[in-house]
């Protein structure tokens, strides 16, 4: 059932496919949709990496990795280069993904229009008509009132020129990584019971205007560990005197940078 939903999702890029999400041994909100998708696609030779906030050692990433090691007897890794399936919450790894790799995103709210129109019966109609005026209007108002787009993360994307899609709550910084990626991108929303996908080599454009192109914010400083200025950073409060340290959010990329 889940595999059928995944195939359907890959056939209609960016379109949300309802599926009968089952209760998982982990709570809704902890990545049940991602876990369902990962469980449906893992094969015996797969190597699984799980990240949360870009890091392999955050508690929920540890918990999900342990869960699959226990119930699926699967090989796990923290190295992006070695992984065939990468389940993630809120980040896309810095290292460019390769053909054959699958990203599985944990999605809280699959509907990109939900803040503008909470009724699913209505958003379904808007998607069918390709009517995204609400989202464009919101973007226009943000730019007119505050000079730039208001969404810093979960900024909606147009997939293959047809469906508006939530990229999940990844920072805008990661949105461009979805565009023409050689990897398969699968999105699982357990509580909302939807699966959607971006097949490899698919056009994914962040919603913007010609005269106000999408411009995600980058950290002002390099990483305190590896020195990278290209990566997405966590801002760590270092002391009570306003001291800040910036470190890579992607712990594997940072390790590679330090070596």
């Amino acid at each position: 059932m889940i595999r059928r939903a995944i195939l359907k999702a890959l056939a209609i890029p960016g379109h949300q496919i309802p599926f009968g999400a089952r209760e998982m041994p982990l709570p809704y909100g902890w990545g049940t949709g991602g876990i369902a998708v990962t469980a449906a696609i893992l094969g015996p030779r797969d190597v699984l990496k799980v990240i949360d906030q870009g890091a392999d050692d955050t508690t929920n990433a540890v918990s999900i990795r342990r869960f699959f090691a226990r119930v699926a007897g699967i090989a796990t890794t923290t190295r992006t280069a070695e992984a065939s399936v990468i389940q993630t919450r809120h980040r896309i790894p810095e290292r460019p993904l390769q053909e054959g790799q699958v990203m599985v995103f944990q999605v809280p709210m699959p509907e990109p229009l939900f803040r503008l129109e909470p009724r699913l019966a209505e958003t379904r109609r808007l998607h069918a008509l390709g009517d995204y005026a609400l989202a464009q209007l919101r973007l226009y108002e943000d730019i007119a009132q505050q000079g730039e787009a208001g969404s810093a993360y979960n900024h909606p994307v147009m997939v293959a020129g047809r469906y508006l899609m939530s990229p999940s709550p990844i920072p805008g910084f990661d949105n461009p990584k979805l565009h023409m990626s050689p990897a398969i991108m699968l999105f699982g929303a357990g509580r909302e019971k939807k699966i959607y996908a971006v097949p490899p080599w698919t056009e994914v454009r962040s919603l913007d205007f010609d005269d106000h192109p999408f411009a995600p914010v980058h950290a002002a400083q390099g990483c305190a560990f590896c020195g990278s200025t290209a990566s997405y950073k966590d801002e760590i409060v270092a002391d009570d005197a306003g001291g800040r340290v910036f470190v890579c959010s992607d712990t594997d990329a940072c390790r590679e940078g330090q070596e």
Binding site: G29, R89, D234, E235
Partner: peptide
């Protein structure tokens, strides 16, 4: 699940919100 998941780390999103 959805209410309590707010306990999970959200510092990546919060960081982008902070910079925004």
């Amino acid at each position: 699940g959805f209410v309590e998941h707010l306990k999970l780390p959200h510092h990546v999103d919060f960081q982008s919100e902070l910079e925004k």
